[in-house]
């Protein structure tokens, strides 16, 4: 086992309706400081966490989506979006607030299998 762990954060939940996505993001920010090999995947409703054009002011909820844009500053650069999940929701890469790589399901399966730990949020 190497000194660096491969940790995947699997974002599967939509924002706002439940807190999993937001608190999952909080955990990612801390993980960045541990110099591990971090990968984030956006699948299913997790894709909605990085959708452009959110305005939560009228709903009275904190908009945490801008934080996804600063992940790079925390040395977290491996972001992947499941193409099928994105397209099923009528979205394209242009609709996303981060430059995540759009990949097919097989690629995500392969990435998952490489991990030491997969944390679902």
């Amino acid at each position: 086992m190497s000194d660096i762990s491969k940790i995947m954060i699997m974002m599967r939940k939509a924002p706002y309706g439940t807190i999993y996505s937001f608190e999952g993001l909080e955990s990612v920010l801390i993980m960045g400081a541990y110099e591990q090999d971090i990968t984030i995947i956006f699948v299913d409703d997790g894709v909605y966490s990085i959708k452009k054009g959110m305005d939560t002011s009228a709903a009275g909820i904190k908009d945490f989506s801008p934080t996804f844009r600063v992940l790079e500053m925390y040395d977290i650069e491996k972001l992947y979006v499941d193409k099928e999940s994105m397209e099923a929701r009528g979205l394209t890469a242009d609709d996303l607030i981060v430059g995540a790589e759009v990949v097919d399901t097989e690629t995500i399966t392969k990435l998952m299998e490489e991990q030491d730990v997969v944390l679902p949020f």
Binding site: S27, I30, M31, Y34
Partner: peptide
Amino acid sequence: SGLGQLTEMAINADRFVT
């Protein structure tokens, strides 16, 4: 404690179950 503990558990464990 902080979220760092989650990271440390993930690093130190052979298996991490959610």
